[in-house]
C-alpha cells in the first residue's frame, strides 16, 4: 500500500496546480447548518488550497463531519455557499464529484457481498472508469490496500481495519484531484496508520489535494501542510501549519553537551532557562544571537541553536482554550 499504483497516473489527467495560484480545491463561505435546535456548523469561511494536505481538527461533535458532508453535497446547508473544485455545490456536483474520492463516516458496504463484489459495485457507477476497465481497476485497488487475499471473503467477516482499507480502496479507485478522508485511521493498528500516511504522501506527490479530519493531533501534525481547528461548529483557526506554529512560537532551543554551565551563563545574561533533555530551553530573555555570543564567550560548547516551536498539541490547547 506504500506504492499508490493508480495514483501515479493522476499527473496524466490532472495538472499539478501551483499552490496559491490555482483556485482552492474547496471553498465555503458563511456556511451554516442547523439540525433542529443544534447548530452543527456556525458561519464557517474556509479555503482548502489546491495541492495541500489539509487537516481538520476538532473534538468529537465539533462539526468536522457535517462540514465535509456539506462539501460533498450529502447534506444541504442551512445557509451559505460551497464550492468544490471551483464548481458550486450542488449544481456542479455531477462535474466535480468524479474527481473526488471520499471516505466519509466509515466505509459503507454490503455485508452479504465479498470485498471484491462491493468494489465492483462502486466501480460500476464510477464515471471515470470505462465498463471494460472496472475489473482491472478493482483488482489494482484491492492490491494497493493489501486486501487482495481477502477479496473473496464476505464483507461481514472483515475486521475494522480491513473495512477501513476497503473504504480507502473505493475512494482511490481512480486518480482523484481531491481525496476526502474522514477519520481515516479509525480502527487501524499502528502499521495501518503508517500506511495511511504513506498513501497521503503519495497522493500529495501526484498533486492531489487531501482533506482529512481527525481528532488525533499527532497524525495530523505528521502529514498535514495546512490545518483548521473547529470547535462547536465555529472555525477557531485555519492556515498553513508552519505559520500557525510560528505564531505561537517563542524562546530558543540550545543543544549543548554541558547544560549545567550553560544554564548559569544564560541566567547571568538575563534569560529564563531550564534544562530540557540533553540541551537547554530558553523560554524568555534576550534574542538568540545575544545568548549564543554569551555562551561562546564563556566557552560553553554549543552544538546548535534554533527557534523553539511548540508542538501541535500545545497549539491546539492554546487555540481551543483561549
Amino acid at each position: 500500500m506504500s506504492t499508490a499504483g493508480g495514483i501515479g497516473t493522476a499527473q496524466e489527467t490532472a495538472q499539478r496546480p501551483e499552490p496559491g495560484t490555482a483556485p482552492p480545491a474547496a471553498r465555503v463561505r458563511a456556511l451554516r447548518k442547523v439540525f433542529g435546535r443544534v447548530t452543527a456548523v456556525d458561519g464557517v469561511d474556509l479555503d482548502v488550497p489546491a495541492g495541500s494536505v489539509f487537516g481538520m481538527l476538532g473534538p468529537n461533535g465539533s462539526g468536522k463531519t457535517t462540514l465535509i458532508r456539506m462539501l460533498l453535497g450529502l447534506t444541504r446547508p442551512t445557509s451559505g455557499s460551497v464550492e468544490l473544485l471551483g464548481l458550486p455545490v450542488p449544481a456542479g456536483l455531477p462535474a466535480a464529484l468524479p474527481d473526488v474520492g471520499a471516505l466519509v463516516e466509515g466505509p459503507g458496504f454490503h455485508p452479504f457481498l465479498t470485498g471484491r463484489e462491493n468494489l465492483r459495485r462502486v466501480a460500476a457507477v464510477e464515471p471515470r472508469l470505462a465498463a471494460r476497465d472496472t475489473g482491472p481497476a478493482v483488482d489494482a485497488a484491492l492490491e494497493r490496500v493489501g486486501l487482495a487475499d481477502a477479496a473473496r471473503r464476505r464483507f461481514r467477516g472483515y475486521s475494522l481495519g480491513m473495512k477501513q482499507r476497503l473504504g480507502l480502496a473505493a475512494a482511490l479507485l481512480v486518480p482523484r484531484r481531491l481525496v476526502v478522508l474522514d477519520e481515516p485511521t479509525n480502527g487501524l493498528d499502528p502499521a495501518g496508520t503508517r500506511e495511511i500516511r504513506a498513501v497521503v504522501a503519495d497522493l500529495r506527490a501526484t498533486g492531489a489535494t487531501v482533506l482529512l479530519s481527525s481528532h488525533l493531533l499527532s497524525e495530523v501534525e505528521a502529514v498535514c501542510t495546512h490545518v483548521a481547528v473547529l470547535k462547536q461548529g465555529s472555525l477557531l483557526a485555519a492556515g498553513e501549519l508552519g505559520r500557525l506554529l510560528d505564531a505561537v512560537a517563542g524562546g530558543w532551543e540550545i543543544a549543548t553537551t554541558d547544560p549545567g554551565p550553560a544554564l548559569r551563563v544564560l541566567r547571568e545574561a538575563g534569560a529564563t532557562a531550564r534544562a530540557d533533555g540533553p540541551g537547554v530551553l530558553v523560554e524568555d530573555g534576550p534574542d538568540g544571537p545575544v545568548l549564543f555570543a554569551a555562551l561562546v564567550r564563556a566557552e560553553v560548547p554549543v552544538h546548535g541553536l534554533r527557534r523553539h516551536r511548540p508542538d501541535l498539541e500545545t497549539l491546539f490547547t492554546r487555540i481551543t482554550e483561549s
Binding site: R76, P77, S79, S81, P88, V89, P90, A91
Partner: peptide, 8 residues
C-alpha cells in the same frame, strides 16, 4: 443559492 432553486 442555486441548489435552493434547483431543489425547489
Amino acid at each position: 443559492m442555486t441548489s435552493g432553486s434547483r431543489v425547489r
